[in-house]
Amino acid sequence: MFKFTGKILSLTAAALMVSTAVSSAQNLDELIAAAKAEGTLTTVALPHSWCNYGEVISSFKEKYGIEVNELNPDAGSADEIEAIKANKGNTGPQAPDVIDVGYAFGPSAKAEGLTQPYKVSTWDTIPNEVKDPEGHWYGDYYGVLAFMVNTDIVKNVPKDWSDLLKPEYANSVALSGNPLGDNQAILAVQAAGLAAGAASGAPAAEAGLKYFAELNKAGNFVPVTARTGTLAQGATPIVVYWDYNALSGKDELKDNPPVEVVVPASGVIAGVYVQAISAYAPHPNAAKLWMEHLYSDEGQLLWLKGYCHPIRFNDLAKNGKIPQDLLDKMPPAAAYEKAVFPTLEEQAAAKEVISKDWSGVVGANVQ
């Protein structure tokens, strides 16, 4: 088991100023009333297939009767931050209320004054290592990077990063984002560096850039933002993807084409994503209620249903709240034994190297 090492409202003033931590049923009722009065929640970068977000969103709408305005589902973490910056004075439909971003983006967004604090009622069950003490951001789920392989096209399924350099994988390997700003892609570069024997952080970033330069020079790298659809079409037969995206994509395709999901033998890197509320959220109470939904037992199990390890996984397991059928659908525990969880400092150092040197070292413009 993983262990961490991180509309104007006509309401009363009390309802408008809901506490930063919901500590009682009465306070929760006040929050629900305030959120319903706002009537809308605006999200960004939440594909329905990612961590079962489709069901997470629909259950929120059904439970509270609040509309969800979904912006740019395929955006990356950097795009989410820019969406807040670009809409600071905008209370219209293009201003996101909440963001779900890579671990390193949480502290940086707080430092730039882009988030506001809120502690959910289950705050104490979120590990301290992955939450801001003031409540500006907190971990939501995690997974490991894996290879999603279209076995209609790729007959010899790669088992490790070094395999991807073989001539048989020409024009086959793609990332699920642009390493200049997408958290998943940035961590993929680091994972390749770890597989080459480099230490986590800047060394892994440097080694990972050299690896992708070699992969590109060999003609194996496909410089497009890959998804389950591009894999199924044969444009990107091998996609470096979060395990939960790959597994949910496999379910979605229903063996058309057949897919194999492989956690590599080395360079297994785990990534924690975090939630935050925009400092400029047009619907702050709906945003807080959204957080309550996500961090409730119900919300956490909906993420697990989408193959994501929810951040409260240990607490739920300890209290016997995880159905066995959900556990049985996950990869075996042994697949995660070598997983490396980079610290915030290591991620920040690696991100700086990769964003600065990707174009010059790798020479591939991911579209």
Rank of each mutant, 00 (worst) to 15 (best):
K159V: 11
F60R: 08
A45Y: 05
Y169Q: 09
G219T: 08
G65S: 07
A335V: 01
V130L: 10
I186H: 06
M291A: 14
V340Q: 06
K356F: 06
A86E: 12
N69G: 05
A185Q: 04
T343E: 01
N365L: 10
D357V: 02
N69L: 02
A95Y: 02
A333V: 09
A199N: 09
V154G: 05
M330C: 04
F212R: 03
I277R: 00
L304I: 07
K217I: 09
P96V: 08
S108Q: 14
D243H: 10
A226Y: 04
E298A: 06
S24M: 08
A286M: 03
Y53C: 05
D251F: 11
V68W: 00
L253C: 05
Q300D: 07
P47F: 03
M17V: 12
E346M: 05
A202T: 07
V120K: 01
K166Y: 03
Y118H: 07
Q233A: 15
A265G: 14
A199H: 02
E252D: 14
A287E: 05
L31C: 09
A15I: 10
T115K: 00
L344P: 01
L289W: 00
L327K: 13
A333H: 09
F313L: 03
I99M: 04
V222W: 00
K210E: 15
S108N: 08
K61W: 01
G181V: 04
A104E: 14
D297H: 06
G39R: 06
E70P: 08
S121Y: 15
L9D: 10
E134Y: 02
F212S: 00
A83H: 03
G360K: 15
L344I: 12
A109L: 00
V56R: 06
L9S: 10
L187V: 12
G6N: 14
I238A: 03
P237A: 11
D152T: 13
V259C: 01
E337V: 07
V56C: 11
A192V: 09
A335Q: 08
A265K: 15
N183P: 02
P167T: 11
M1C: 10
A78T: 12
L11C: 09
E134Q: 10
P237N: 10
D124E: 15
Q116M: 13
A335D: 15
K288M: 13
L215I: 11
S200W: 04
A364M: 07
Q233W: 08
W123G: 11
Q26W: 15
S49I: 14
L46M: 10
G320Q: 06
G89N: 15
L316S: 09
D255F: 13
A364N: 12
G139S: 02
D97I: 08
D255H: 09
I126V: 13
L304A: 11
D243S: 15
E337P: 00
P73T: 12
A349C: 03
I32V: 12
K351V: 02
A86T: 13
S19K: 12
A25M: 06
K351F: 07
D100H: 14
G177S: 03
E80G: 09
E260T: 15
W137M: 03
I84M: 01
I84H: 00
E168V: 05
F341A: 07
K7P: 06
G54Y: 00
F313H: 03
D163T: 04
A199Y: 01
A198R: 04
S10F: 11
G208L: 04
